[in-house]
């Protein structure tokens, strides 16, 4: 199945793109996807433990099972205010 990964804030500097598409196996989790993305964009590994992850508009944990067509957002700690 295919999912879209969007990058926000300075993660775009790390990846030099706004988004990417990945093929993932059925049953793949958000954690699996994060690992795959960090392999593709090694600079993201610097922020591995503080990366926030959302599927659609909701935060999800690494054990969240992805579905075909999901839109995942990866971003650094938020800084509003």
């Amino acid at each position: 199945m295919k999912v879209t990964v969007k990058f926000w804030s300075y993660f775009r500097d790390f990846t030099e793109c706004n988004e990417t598409s990945l093929e993932v196996d059925d049953g793949a989790t958000l954690g699996d996807l994060h690992s795959a993305v960090m392999e593709q964009f090694p600079k993201l590994a610097e922020m591995k433990n503080s990366t926030l992850k959302a599927v659609g508009v909701d935060y999800q944990t690494d054990d969240f099972v992805l579905s075909d067509g999901d839109e995942i957002s990866l971003f650094p700690p938020v800084q509003g205010g």
Binding site: D25, D32, S35, S50
Partner: peptide
Amino acid sequence: QFQSPQGNDPSPSRRAK
């Protein structure tokens, strides 16, 4: 609750699990 769990990460792979 939004932090990535420490350790036990799957081996890196371009194609997720």
